[in-house]
Design a binder for these strands. Structure first.
Lengths: 189, 189
DNA sequence: AGTCCTGTTGTGAGTACTCACTCATTAATT
DNA sequence: AATTAATGAGTGAGTACTCACAACAGGACT
């Protein structure tokens, strides 16, 4: 072996993809993604055999980045409410300060380019966070509903909240606590 | 004048566009949309000069269809809560029974293909419905927040609820009322 | 009625362009 | 020198959009 394939370039490509897809949608061209990463278009295809492979790698990269941010703020709390609230704040903060990651991730989540296999792989690596979500679900009125509804409501409210915090940062804290109140006092029975 | 340009074909094109875009995204080809409407590709461009014109016409068509559905269920109610609840149910029902309309509309709403002018035009035709939304906003804890947050929360929750009702119709009613409870008891102070 | 005339709609092969992806060549490292 | 990474013009498929022509519906005149 002569040259090692550089992890740096891989990451530069992923972050360029996130930035450009946030602005132009998932249809952003591979040419512009490569240019944004400062490499030739052919190089992109050395790291990701097809664009679909890139989509899936990007989904994993973004989810793990989010998970790392959440874990930093998952100290033990007295009540379930405090714990979920900490998760909420961490999630909103991540979205606001990594806006293009957040936007692109939201597009990938609803895209059929990301395979079920990829989703499963990621989910299994996030089991510790799912744990907290489960504790929350078990303690509120949504637990009676088939799986995932509480999660989905959490995500939907967070997405909306992040949009408003970004659009009007002066009221950021107000949106953040209002959003959490809707989720919490709305779902606790 | 010889042949009147048929309103039927215009509508067939719009509905075909909604169906195909719901499945394939806004990038669906004009060729497939025309085929779905049973006309030649050139015909599409007689009715809509460019694809962007089609996007805007489709946005208007879908919004007005939704508004018509909502108006049918806007009888006067005793309390603001009942009124908003009726609006909620009507919205969920429309989304569930016009799923491709709903999906495509959600894509158009966040797309930059739809001009601000189009959005304004539609908004002015929906002033009566906005009225109820306003009454709701004035009566709950979100009214203190800068405009649109309560609306956005309503829409986000409705979108999530519709997804779950469609995925698991047996529990449809449960999702529907749980979703409303999150919105209402979460936002009333 | 029948037949031309006129103006409009409907058509689909054709055009210019963009895209994801390839591959012969060059650059870099051991 | 040997081996592999990096490059970017090139390829074929697919895109939105065009245009010369065919199909058609009236009105006017035998």
């Amino acid at each position: 072996m002569a040259l090692p394939r550089s992890e740096e370039k891989r990451i530069a490509l992923l972050e360029s993809a996130a930035d450009i897809m946030a602005a132009q949608g998932l249809g952003a061209s591979t040419a512009s993604i490569a240019r944004g990463a400062g490499v030739a278009e052919g190089t992109l295809f050395r790291y990701f055999a097809t664009k679909d492979v890139l989509y899936n790698a990007l989904y994993i990269h973004l989810k793990l980045d989010l998970a790392a941010a959440l874990r930093q703020h998952m100290a033990a709390h007295d009540s379930v409410e405090d714990q979920v609230h900490a998760l909420w704040d961490a999630y909103i903060d991540w979205g606001v300060s990594n806006l293009s990651f957040f936007k692109t991730l939201n597009q990938l989540v609803v895209s059929d380019k990301v395979t079920d296999e990829t989703r499963c792989t990621v989910a299994s690596q996030l089991s510790d966070i799912k744990c907290v979500a489960q504790a929350c679900s078990d303690n509120n009125g949504l637990s009676a509903l088939p799986g995932g509804f509480a999660d989905a409501v959490f995500m939907a409210l967070a997405e909306t909240t992040i949009q408003f915090v970004v659009r009007d940062p002066a009221n950021g804290q107000a949106y953040k606590s209002a959003g959490f109140r809707v989720f919490w006092s709305g779902s606790v029975r």
